[in-house]
């Protein structure tokens, strides 16, 4: 018998093992839900799959009586728009400042302590400030996301830029490169795949800030809906919404990973060989 640390599961075993916790969770839910419903058919805490299905149908297919919109899609659209804006702006800020801070010592000396200080402010603590300054609509939600994740991306990319081998920067100078040319042709292209990595890592936080902002003040959005129906203990809506948000987060992550692979074919080789 091999030691446990040497035992590699086969592909199928690995897949089965990976699915197991999900299946177990579903089973546990089913059993608990059945037990509660047997005791009280009107229990709202753990709705049956049938009532979850009904709720999904109501939210995702039938138009809302009041607004005429299909709520799930309206909510998804609103949330994804805020998320994309917030993450996109953060990525641009992260790229511009991260590279400048990492590549140019004078910029680093001037701005690094400031960025570090900024990143230590708990974003949720300034949400009231954002509401006061930007009002209760879209801008303050996007700004909260930016405030929450841009400092992380800036600091991560600053670090990645500084980790580029010094030899490459020297080499570029011996090829006649100016500061601008070196940033454009040597630093930026090597930082872009790392930007996508940083964005992937910060997506979880971005969702957190989005839902927090929507919970407090919004008229549509996934987070808004969850916190709205909580008043009626509508677990049959909340649970599918949470599952849907999780699925969206997963798909975004996969999409970014595929994009990195397709757009930067050299990156995988280089990382595998430890030369990136």
């Amino acid at each position: 018998m091999k030691r446990l640390i040497n035992f590699q599961p086969s592909r199928t075993t690995g897949l089965a093992l990976g699915l197991l916790p999900f299946v177990l969770l579903l089973l546990a839910y089913l059993m608990a839900s059945d037990a509660r419903l047997a005791e009280n058919p009107n229990d709202k805490l753990l709705p049956s799959f049938a009532s979850l299905g009904e709720a999904v149908h109501r939210m995702a297919v039938e138009p809302d009586k009041r607004t005429g919109e299909v709520l799930l899609w309206a909510d998804t659209g609103a949330s994804l728009r805020r998320l994309a804006l917030g993450v996109g702006i953060s990525a641009l800020i992260g790229l511009a400042f991260g590279v400048a801070l990492g590549a140019i010592p004078l910029v680093r000396a001037g701005l690094s302590p400031f960025v570090e200080g900024l990143s230590l402010i708990p974003p949720m603590a300034i949400l009231p400030v954002l509401f006061v300054v930007f009002g209760l609509d879209e801008v303050s939600k996007v700004v909260l996301i930016v405030f929450g994740i841009a400092p992380f991306i800036v600091r991560d990319l600053q670090q990645r830029t500084r980790e580029l081998p010094r030899e490459l920067i020297v080499k570029a100078q011996t090829l006649g490169g100016s500061t601008w040319q070196i940033v454009l042709r040597v630093v930026l292209p090597q930082i872009l795949p790392r930007l996508l990595d940083a964005v992937r890592l910060s997506l979880g936080a971005a969702w957190l800030f989005l839902i927090a902002a929507e919970a407090i003040a919004a008229t549509e959005g996934l987070g808004y809906r969850i916190f709205l129906v909580r008043r009626y203990l509508a677990m049959d809506v909340i649970l599918p919404y949470v599952a849907w948000i999780t699925l969206l987060a997963y798909l975004t992550d996969v999409a970014l990973r595929l994009l990195t692979r397709a757009a930067f074919p050299w990156y995988r080789h280089a990382v595998a060989k430890g030369v990136a």
């Binding site: 081998p165 030899e167 090597q190 930067f264 050299w266 280089a270 990136a276």
Partner: peptide, 12 residues
């Protein structure tokens, strides 16, 4: 210059 390592650009 040619260094022992990191002399060429991995992204090109």
């Amino acid at each position: 210059i040619v260094f022992q390592r990191y002399s060429v650009f991995p992204h090109l």
